[in-house]
Simulated scan of single mutants.
Amino acid sequence: MSAAPASSLPPRGTRQREVIGRLLQAAEGPLDVPELHRRALGELPKLGVATVYRTLKLLQEQGAAHMVTLDGENLYEASGRGHHHHFSCRACQRVFTLHTCPVALPAGTIYPGGFVVEAHEVTLYGVCPECAKNSL
């Protein structure tokens, strides 16, 4: 019995890319690798964490995902969400995407002292609605 020609096989990792990409799209905010791995195991029970890292690298190279660094931790989110910021819940540790900008500081603004603004990132910290409700 001969093996099928390599060209007839699906590209390696396609299912992993599809699942991880979909999980990033559906997430309420950026995810760290352990959380992304945990969520993906529901559909890919044999998925290794190294595959998650490789897939994230590929998704970043393709422009489908990007890394966000919050408090020194690398998180990942789907690209193409436009200008947005994040809210980090101190109670449950989840990070949420905020779709409104709390800072009116467009690129090209000259900040006091002569600093020329090119972009900005804002992370708000506090308690998310679910944790606030549970603490009452």
Rank of each mutant, 00 (worst) to 15 (best):
E130K: 14
G42K: 12
Q93C: 05
A64E: 15
A4C: 12
R39P: 08
G82A: 04
H85A: 04
G126V: 09
P129E: 15
L47Y: 13
A104C: 09
S8Q: 08
G48N: 09
R81G: 00
L47T: 12
G48W: 05
V117I: 15
G82I: 11
A65R: 00
R38C: 11
A3M: 14
G126D: 11
G113D: 02
E18R: 13
Y125P: 08
L98F: 01
D32A: 14
T100A: 03
F96H: 10
A3V: 14
A3I: 13
H120Q: 02
H120N: 03
P30A: 08
R81L: 03
L75Q: 01
A40E: 11
A3Q: 13
A119G: 06
A132C: 07
Q25A: 13
R81Y: 00
N74C: 03
G63I: 04
T97F: 03
G114Q: 07
L41C: 03
G21T: 05
E77N: 02
L47H: 10
E73I: 14
K46L: 06
A40L: 09
V52N: 12
A65K: 01
V116K: 09
Y76F: 06
R90I: 13
E35P: 10
R81M: 00
V33T: 14
F96V: 09
H85D: 13
P5G: 03
R22E: 10
A50D: 15
T97R: 05
G114K: 12
T14N: 05
V117A: 06
L24R: 02
Q62G: 03
D32M: 11
L36E: 02
H85L: 07
Y53S: 01
G63C: 02
P112M: 06
V103I: 11
A6C: 09
P11R: 11
T69E: 15
C128A: 05
F87V: 02
T14H: 09
Q60C: 15
A64S: 12
T97P: 00
K57A: 03
S135N: 15
L59W: 01
C89I: 04
V127S: 02
Y53E: 10
V95R: 04
G63S: 00
E77M: 09
A6F: 02
V116I: 13
G42F: 11
T14A: 07
C89M: 06
R17W: 10
P11T: 05
Y111N: 04
Q62R: 01
R15D: 12
L47A: 06
S2E: 13
V33C: 06
P45I: 13
P112W: 08
V116G: 07
Y76L: 00
E28Q: 14
S79K: 03
R54V: 06
E61C: 07
A6H: 05
G80I: 04
F115T: 14
I20Q: 03
V68M: 10
R39D: 11
A27M: 06
L75A: 01
